[in-house]
Design a binder for these strands. Structure first.
Length: 874
RNA sequence: GCCCGGGUGGCGGAACGGCAGACGCAUCGGACUUAAAAUCCGAAGGUGAGUUAAAUCACCGUGUGGGUUCGAAUCCCUCCCCGGGCACCA
């Protein structure tokens, strides 16, 4: 905006009040207040070098308005901000320039803080957290050790200290009292000592116990991105096989030793506890899909050679329709079932499948492929011999890596069978008019021995019970959710606090040695051979075993960026505590988070991972709630004026920066405009003229109270009844709408009020003083300034929200609409108390109504008191 | 392909099953001004009738087609389009 006279002195007012709030620590809540506690949280940002984007203030303003409003309603509000500061860009910059990532990070944080503070958000800045601060990541490491030192007890269905398991398997247990009533531990001990010989027990302990930990090591094929020189998590690989971070194309699997978190043990609870939270249904649905629970049965087929071939199916009722089997190319039985004459073809297929990139396997590969192994399996329900195929449409990672194919009732099997000329046998009767071949819905079993004639759900139950009785199968639940690949081959992340000892294996760094800090380094480049950069810091790597003091080496993998954000909301509660990650009583007071606002891009991962960590901490007694976030709202995206995503790569022409907007229009205008654009959850385009409209409104408010020179012009006249009513309507609507986050309509109501008062000569203080309070959550700087001009010496942040008088809102007369056959024909003002009968009489006597009733017969008269009369006639 | 959202003026959007289009933008007209900006006041869904101009009136209108209802933007079904997510998960 070029040299335009400001409509009101926001450039003086805003810095003034921001200084006041900071100096008075206005927004510091108390940990022991009598008021109702309220924890209002924003998803903390990654402080990128690009700075704040207009999308950020949208969510921040929403939580800020809500927080300010609730403070005025007497709530004790915790509203903090911090930085999710580990991340690749700072490390990449370090590789390119040698600048330590902490320097880049600090600089970016300073810039983000400056930008956020410029918006006048009511954070308690004394609680700021930074995930890269050793004082913070000390506790991230501590939580990792909680996971490492726990196992999931299948009987108790919760995490338990691994020490109990170790004790239960010890030659001379010390803590029997603690586990003798635990069926899992007592049972495990019984089985262990029953089977293993003394000499073998140590070996079994060494192998078994580490695998039971919630954080465990495993050699797994992982996604390696050649471009990033880093391992990617499953969720960082796009469906088309490219890298989700930078779009690199060379992404393939390679085996690597990795730290894994056993999130799958929590699959059921993560699914079930979604019922406890007030989240958008779409987010819940995405989490449910991600967890991907499906109930079915494992069924044991036999190969001709007599090997057990176990499959998973969700449709055991279609067992009689199985006409072939499919093994994943990686399945261990493939070799065994393949006779010599088929070996060449099968090997060729498997090699080909292994080298195929994910891109080819999912995108280009629409046609099904596979080869016949030459081997056969026996169907346990009818002893029929059916061929075994290998095909890559069956994946090793899900179920058992093998299926029974029922082409008549499974789309994939159907396609495959048609292509290779395999038998398609109908065993489910479809509803009339639908082809049973390829019918995948529920119907009635046919040609299925004992379950013939049963509807699908019952058929499933009966056949599963039969299988179980014959020890041929059992009901099973499968999940799509995989364990969480937790390690990264990167420098700029939390070091994993583990020491590798030749004698004792992976040993936890003792708690008193935390934080385990990152070493200083000169060179941050990865070796490129999957050795993390930390491996080069030999002084740091070489250490002693915490258990036996023998030479040992430190873990050189670091944690992923998700780690710090899994629990930051807990640290805000007690950010400077160096004895605990959060003090128990404070956690109990503040948790759970009452309102959490952020982008929908975190619908699955961040929210699922935080929930998982939270449940582990809950099981171990460190936190008091099973779920961390009670109400969740996703703010919508803000598009550029061209209706496109704002992006620098588009030449930056459509990017609006908060700095420019605040400079030209002020923070209050930016805040209000972002809220006025439309519903919080909606995606909506930026429009600078719209911003100016809101800015004009703030100017109108200013002029309502002040002269050109800023002197107050209010008077002590009695406001008219009409204006008093307008004020009370406004207070009511703004209160209700703010409470339900309907900020756009709250602002409309304030505009209506200001328009009405502007039209009057008088400026009654009785009207305009309460209005300042209603405006305050939205335009806090302007409101504080006016409040001060009105003679108040203290911030209005804790002034009680103005009450509205219901009696003033009552209408003496109401406008009634008259309809004939549902069409509006006239409207008239009548006393509010009018009786139905009178209303009906008036309506029938109405001239316009009479016109439209001419020549018609009245069939029915609907009277809605206070609203309308509708006459149905024909 | 499947699962979520969503389609309302020129634009952003309002509207407990009961006056469609609040509020804002853009537009047009007026006041103020030498003039402009700023500000203030006012008009405005479309089509047609009416009239010097109005007032006024009728019909049509919430993606499409159907249904429920005295009455549907709102509830139910069909289809179309847009946005987001998942994608051989057995």
């Amino acid at each position: 905006m070029p040299e335009l006279r400001k409509k009101y002195p926001f450039d003086k007012i805003e810095p003034k009040w921001q200084r006041y709030w900071a100096e008075h620590k206005t927004f510091a809540p108390r940990d022991d207040s009598a008021g109702k506690k309220l924890y209002v949280l924003d998803m903390f940002p990654y402080p990128s070098g690009a700075g704040l984007h207009v999308g950020h203030p949208e969510g921040y303003t929403a939580t800020d308005i809500y927080s300010r409003f609730q403070r005025m309603r007497g709530c004790n509000v915790l509203h903090p901000m911090g930085w999710d500061a580990f991340g690749l860009p700072a490390e990449q910059y370090a590789i390119d320039t040698g600048t330590h990532p902490s320097i880049t990070t600090r600089k970016n944080i300073d810039n983000f803080r400056r930008q956020i503070q410029m918006l006048g958000l009511s954070y308690d800045w004394d609680r700021e957290v930074d995930t890269t601060d050793p004082g913070y990541y000390k506790w991230t490491q501590w939580i990792f050790l909680q996971l490492f030192n726990s196992y999931y007890d299948p009987e108790l269905e919760k995490a338990q200290p691994i020490a109990l398991l170790q004790d239960a398997l010890a030659e001379t247990p010390q803590r029997q009292d603690e586990w003798k009533d635990n069926p899992f531990l007592a049972g495990t001990r019984k089985g262990f000592f029953g089977k293993s010989e003394v000499g073998a027990r140590d070996l079994v302990r060494q192998l078994f116990i580490p695998k039971m930990r919630l954080a465990y090591e495993s050699e797994v094929p992982v996604w390696w991105c050649e471009g990033c020189k880093a391992v990617l998590a499953n969720e960082e690989v796009n469906a088309d096989g490219t890298c989700d971070r930078k779009g690199h194309k060379e992404v393939y699997r390679r085996p690597l030793r990795q730290w894994i978190l056993r999130i799958t043990k929590y699959a059921d609870r993560l699914l079930k506890d979604l019922e406890l939270v007030d989240w958008p249904e779409s987010i819940k649905e995405q989490q449910r899909n991600w967890i991907g629970r499906s109930e079915g049965a494992e069924v044991d087929f036999k190969t001709e050679a007599g090997d057990r071939l176990r499959i998973f199916t969700t449709r055991p009722d279609t067992l009689f329709g199985a006409t072939y089997m499919v093994l994943a190319p990686e399945h261990s039985l493939v070799e065994k079932v393949t006779p010599a004459q088929q070996r060449a073809a099968v090997d060729a297929y498997r090699t080909n499948a292994a080298t195929k990139s994910e891109l080819e396997r999912t995108q280009l590969e629409k046609e099904k492929t596979g080869v016949f192994t030459g081997g056969y399996a026996i169907n346990p329900v009818n002893n029929e011999k059916i061929p075994i195929w290998v095909a890559d449409y069956v994946m090793m990672g899900y179920g058992t890596g093998a299926i029974m194919a029922v082409p008549a009732h499974d789309t994939r099997d159907f396609e495959f069978a048609k292509k290779f000329g395999l038998e398609i046998r109908t065993v489910v009767q479809s509803p009339a008019g639908i082809d049973p071949q390829g019918f995948t819905g529920d119907g009635t079993s046919v040609n299925s021995g004992p379950i013939t004639g049963l509807p699908t759900p019952e058929a499933k139950k009966k056949i599963t019970a039969w299988l179980e009785e014959k020890k041929l199968g059992k009901p099973t639940v499968q999940y799509k959710l995989r364990d969480w690949l937790f390690s990264r081959q990167r420098y700029w992340g939390e070091p994993i606090p583990i020491v590798h000892c030749p004698e004792h294996g992976a040993v936890a760094v003792p708690e008193r040695e935390l934080p385990l800090q990152l070493p200083e380094m000169k060179d941050y480049t990865p070796a490129g051979n999957a050795e993390p950069p930390l491996a080069k810091a030999t002084d740091w790597v070489n250490t002693k075993c915490p258990q036996c003091d023998a030479p040992a080496t430190r873990e050189t993998n670091t944690m992923p960026q998700w780690a710090g954000s899994c629990w930051y909301f807990l640290r805000y509660i007690d950010p400077h505590n160096d004895q605990a990650f959060v003090a128990k009583e404070k956690e109990k007071y503040w948790m759970p988070v009452d309102l959490y606002i952020g982008g929908a891009e975190h619908a699955v991962l961040h929210l699922l991972y935080s929930r998982f960590w939270h449940k582990v901490l809950f099981d171990l007694g460190h936190v008091s709630t099973p779920e961390p976030f009670m109400k969740l709202v996703n703010q919508g995206m803000i598009l550029g004026e061209d209706n496109q995503k704002m992006s620098k790569s588009r030449g930056g022409s459509n990017v609006i920066t908060p700095d420019d907007v605040v400079r030209d229009y002020g923070a209050d205008a930016l805040r209000m405009y972002e809220m006025f654009m439309g519903p919080l959850e909606a995606t909506k385009p930026w429009n600078t003229q719209g911003l100016e409209g809101v800015y004009r409104f703030l100017g109108r408010v200013w002029r309502l109270y002040c002269n050109e020179d800023g002197t107050l012009i209010l008077d002590d006249s009695e406001p008219s009844a009409a204006l008093l009513k307008a004020l009370h309507q406004t207070i009511k609507k703004v209160g209700e709408d703010t409470d339900t986050l309907a900020f756009n309509t709250a602002i409309s109501q304030m505009m209506i009020f200001v328009n009405e008062v502007t039209a009057q000569e008088k400026r009654p203080r009785k009207l305009l003083e309460p209005f300042v309070l209603a405006l305050a959550p939205y335009a806090p700087h302007l409101a504080e300034e006016l409040w001060e001009k009105l003679g108040h010496k203290q911030t209005l942040a804790y002034e009680p929200w103005p009450a509205f008088d219901e009696a003033l809102l009552k209408e003496d007369t109401v406008t009634i609409i008259l309809q004939v056959n549902g069409k509006l024909r006239d409207r008239l003002d009548v006393p509010a108390q009018i009786s139905r009968e009178d209303l009906e009489k008036i309506a029938l006597a109405n001239e316009r109504v009479q016109e439209h009733l001419a020549g018609k017969q009245i069939k029915k008269i609907i009277v809605v008191p206070g609203k309308l009369v509708n006459i149905a006639a024909s």
